[in-house]
Write a protein that binds this DNA or RNA. Structure first.
Lengths: 173, 173
DNA sequence: TTGAGAATATTCAATTATAAATTAAACGCC
DNA sequence: GGCGTTTAATTTATAATTGAATATTCTCAA
């Protein structure tokens, strides 16, 4: 009975949904379908957040993300630490930091213990600006993910932990 | 009993892992933590796939993604359809398609019914190349997601469906 | 029929992102 | 102390990505 999928009219499917996940059909491995759905969820939310950050605050998502990392670490972070946490390359962090420095939202401080490394911190202004944005950002996330039963949410959280630790092991962190 | 999360020691968490998710602490809303974990999972897997596609096949992830959309639609897709399905802007699709055309992997065919629109298709060579890559790609996904109990996987699949449809409603598709 | 508005795709400028090469400093070891 | 290796960050070249503006074509109502 579950093999009746080949009868589903393709036209209808294409008309009612069209995103990354459209790639997955019944012939695909369950893991692939899962991956495409994961990707579709992330893209959907990420694109909406990006758009709102731009229209509401005139900031880009990567700049917001970098500031978010710094906000949790008042002592500052090195470029390499930002790179790891943001999961992007070092060169990318250099560019985003440059922009934020120009805008006066973060500063590169010299590290007396290691002259190769900077310590990047939010400026007072940066902290002020960020807090205002973060408040809205959190509301948006709740709006986008919300309506989920507490039980489902913690289920999901745990299942993602499984994926994360497995994938991290496979990729060597 | 489920409200004990505020006791999680932040230091330990920060010391043992460093990624996007590091942004989440106990003071954050559960939804925010969930979002950051979702994002971390996606980035982890996506970055690994990108890297393997490059080293094994010398192709970029967006090019692979575009070809993947076409492979399922032998009749071809319009630029706008590719854009929706890949969840990226139209201008982006134009650029990626240009590259693939140069490489001889896809073609833009004129649409006799609508002279504004092209129909993009895989070439014979493109189909050949893609199939080889897709086989490896699927194995990688299984490797990265694998080891998950069938029950957990279908649980996760369903929970993501919830998120996806809710977020799609909020964003207006 | 025609003309206003919608739809389709491209172009453009700016930003983000990667990967590889480079510069500079720290580290370890003899 | 000096030298090879590692580490931290930037630079460079190229690609991907966005958002806005533009050019073309289509639709449809007056």
């Amino acid at each position: 009975m579950s093999k009746t999928t080949f009868q589903v009219p393709e036209i209808t499917v294409a008309a009612t949904q069209a995103d990354t996940e459209t790639r997955a059909t019944s012939e695909h491995a369950p893991d692939l379908r899962l991956w495409l759905r994961l990707l579709a969820c992330t893209n959907l939310i990420e694109n909406e957040i990006r758009s709102r950050l731009r229209t509401e605050f005139g900031i880009t998502l990567p700049r917001f993300d970098l500031m978010a990392q710094l906000e949790r670490k008042p002592q500052g972070l090195r470029m390499g630490e930002l790179s790891k946490r943001m999961m992007v390359t070092g060169g990318n962090v250099t560019g985003i930091t440059d922009q934020l420095v120009t805008e006066g939202l973060v500063v590169r401080e010299d590290n007396p213990n290691d002259r190769r490394a900077y310590i990047v911190k939010l400026t007072t202004e940066g902290r002020r600006v960020f807090r205002r944005m973060a408040e809205a950002h959190e509301k948006w996330i709740v709006e986008l993910l919300g309506g989920m039963a507490e039980n489902d949410r913690s289920q999901l959280y745990g299942l993602l932990a499984q994926i994360k630790s497995h994938a991290a092991r496979v990729t060597g962190r």
